[in-house]
Simulated scan of single mutants.
Amino acid sequence: MAGSGPEACPVAGRVRRAPPVNQPLLGQQAVQALGIRLRDLRRDAGLTGRELATSCGWVPSKVSKIELGKQVPSEDDIRDWCVACQFPSEISDLVAAVRSIDAQYMDWRRSLKTGTRRRQRANIDAYEKTRLIRAWEPTVIPGLLQTAPYARGILTTVIDFHGIPDDIEEGVQARLEAQRVLGRAHRRFLFLLGEAALYTAVGDREAMTEQLRRLLDVTRAPRLSLGIVPLAAPYTVPRNNAFTIYDSRMVTVATYTAELTLRQRHEVTIYEKAFDRLMALAVRGEEARRLVGQALNDQGEI
Rank of each mutant, 00 (worst) to 15 (best):
His266Asn: 13
Val237Gly: 00
Asp298Lys: 11
Met279Phe: 12
Tyr105Ser: 10
Ala45Pro: 02
Lys113Gly: 01
Leu52Glu: 02
Ser248Arg: 14
Ala258Ile: 09
Thr156His: 11
Gly183Cys: 09
Ala197Glu: 09
Ser4Pro: 13
Ala45Lys: 02
Arg131Met: 04
Leu192Asp: 04
Pro149Asp: 08
Cys82Gly: 05
Leu34His: 04
Ser92Asn: 13
Ala97Met: 08
Ile154Val: 15
Asp107Phe: 08
Asp167Ser: 10
Ala197Val: 03
Ala288Gln: 07
Arg180Asn: 15
Val21Met: 05
Asn241Glu: 14
Asp80Ile: 00
Pro230Gln: 03
Leu281Gln: 14
Leu281Ile: 04
Ala18Ile: 01
Ala258Trp: 01
Arg284Asn: 10
Glu206Leu: 13
Val253Arg: 01
Pro19Val: 04
Pro149Cys: 13
Arg284Asp: 11
Gly35His: 06
Thr255Cys: 07
Ala233Lys: 05
Leu52Ala: 04
Ala201Gly: 07
Leu278Ile: 04
Ala288Thr: 05
Arg109Asp: 13
Ser100Glu: 15
Leu112Thr: 05
Ile91Gln: 06
Pro10Val: 02
Ile168Phe: 10
Leu94Ile: 06
Leu155Pro: 00
Asp217Ile: 05
Gln32Lys: 15
Ala30Met: 13
Leu176Trp: 04
Gly69Asp: 10
Arg152His: 10
Ala254Pro: 14
Ser225Ala: 07
Gly143Val: 05
Val15Met: 15
Thr269Ile: 06
Ile124Thr: 11
Thr244Cys: 13
Leu41Glu: 05
Arg265Glu: 14
Gly171Lys: 05
Ala232Tyr: 02
Pro6Glu: 14
Gly293Ala: 01
Cys56Asp: 04
Lys113Ser: 14
Leu262Glu: 00
Met106Leu: 15
Ala201Glu: 13
Thr209Val: 15
Thr236Arg: 11
Val172Phe: 07
Thr116Gln: 06
Leu144His: 03
Val11Asn: 08
Pro222Asn: 11
Gly153Val: 05
Gly57Thr: 07
Arg121Lys: 14
Tyr199Ile: 07
Gly57Ile: 06
Gln28Ser: 08
Gly27Leu: 08
Cys85Met: 03
Ile270Trp: 09
His162Val: 05
Leu155Ser: 07
Thr48Phe: 04
Gln32Asp: 12
Val253Lys: 03
Cys85Ala: 13
